[in-house]
């Protein structure tokens, strides 16, 4: 177990390096960037642009920029500098990380908490009315682009005279200290992003869970368990569900990087204070070290997620062993 962990961590380093190299290359391939767009402002001349390019070392060969970035991380733990904000990347990310993690964790937890029981329910009551209704809502979720859902919900709120049409707070609570009123205000806003982000996830998790459970319920060991006279509840939860959840665990590992990069467009429409829109804007501006840092964070989380999923797989499924 420990050697497995150690091995994985050792392997992770070259993988991360490879990813960083690829991501850097991808960023270099991006068209445009903030330097070019500065020219539209009457204050800026091509000479200024050239000087700023030199100031940020962007006139150096690409590989030198990459190595310099890497060196700063290794030697100083410095993830680079945001050209646009004249600030260190890590402080910028730090500012936005709180709400991002909060929203992501909340939506992941909500999704799973709703989807798994629903999946189990629809598997057991295959042809029931409630199950079909749950399916239908699920399909609606996956068949509608998330930003259309966001727009429709906003239109709905507007037509009922509500004011919670985006963001996590009403304007007056954004910078207010925590209070019950602020919490209430947040809850009044929170349901829209949770529906928009969660709906699609719920539908697919639920359907996959249903399929897996139906498979497992037909397996011999479940039959054996049943024939041994175990209570249906025990059979279901202790034997069937535990096995059926295996593929879901692999998926859960993949959902960790969603903290950063998923639902960017929905976050923009809903005006959520998360990292997604920040990443998108930095990409458009080609603020390269911001993009690098965010994407590396995302890659790191993916690897952590995968590792956790592998461990959870081994724990949940006694058939799996890592030698």
């Amino acid at each position: 177990m420990w050697t497995f962990l150690l091995k994985r961590i050792l392997v992770a380093i070259p993988t991360l390096l490879l990813i960083s190299l690829l991501v850097f290359a991808v960023i270099q391939l991006q068209p445009g960037g903030f330097l070019q767009n500065m020219l539209d402002d009457p204050r800026v001349s091509p000479e200024t642009v050239a000087r700023i390019r030199a100031q940020y070392g962007l006139d150096q060969p690409v590989w030198e920029q990459y190595l310099g970035w890497l060196k700063n991380i290794v030697l100083h733990g410095d993830f680079g500098f945001s050209f646009l904000n004249n600030r260190s990347v890590s402080s910028l990310i730090w500012e936005r990380l709180g709400w991002t993690v909060f929203l992501a964790v909340l939506s992941i937890v909500a999704t799973w908490a709703i989807a798994i029981p629903l999946g189990i329910y629809t598997a057991i009551n295959r042809h029931g009315l409630a199950a079909n209704l749950a399916n239908l809502i699920g399909y609606l979720g996956i068949a509608t682009p998330d930003f259309l859902v966001a727009l429709l919900l906003i239109a709905l709120v507007l037509s009922t005279g509500g004011s919670n049409v985006g963001g996590l707070f009403s304007p007056q609570y954004i910078d207010a200290p925590w209070s019950w009123a602020r919490l209430g205000d947040m809850l009044g806003h929170l349901w829209i992003p949770l529906i928009v982000i969660g709906l699609e996830g719920i539908a697919s998790l639920m359907r996959q869970m249903r399929a897996n459970l139906l498979d497992v319920l037909g397996q011999d060991y479940v039959r054996t368990a049943r024939s041994k006279g175990l209570a249906e509840r025990v059979v279901l939860w202790k034997h069937a569900v535990r096995n059926a959840i295996n593929p879901m665990i692999s998926l859960a590992g993949l959902s960790l990087p969603n903290l950063i990069s998923s639902t960017i467009i929905a976050s923009i429409v809903l005006n959520l204070p998360t990292i997604g829109p920040f990443l998108y804007q930095s990409l458009l501006d080609k603020d390269q070290y911001v993009v690098m840092a965010l994407l590396m964070l995302s890659a790191f989380m993916l690897m952590v997620g995968n590792l956790l999923a592998d461990l959870a797989l081994a724990w949940a499924d006694p058939r799996i062993r890592y030698e």
């Binding site: 993988t15 490879l18 990813i19 690829l22 991501v23 991808v26 960023i27 391939l29 991006q30 993949l254 990087p257 990069s261 960017i264 998108y280 990409l283 993009v291 994407l295 995302s298 890659a299 993916l302 690897m303 995968n306």
Partner: peptide, 10 residues
Amino acid sequence: EVLLSIPRIP
């Protein structure tokens, strides 16, 4: 992992 890490939008 590499594939999943490389973001789609860029």
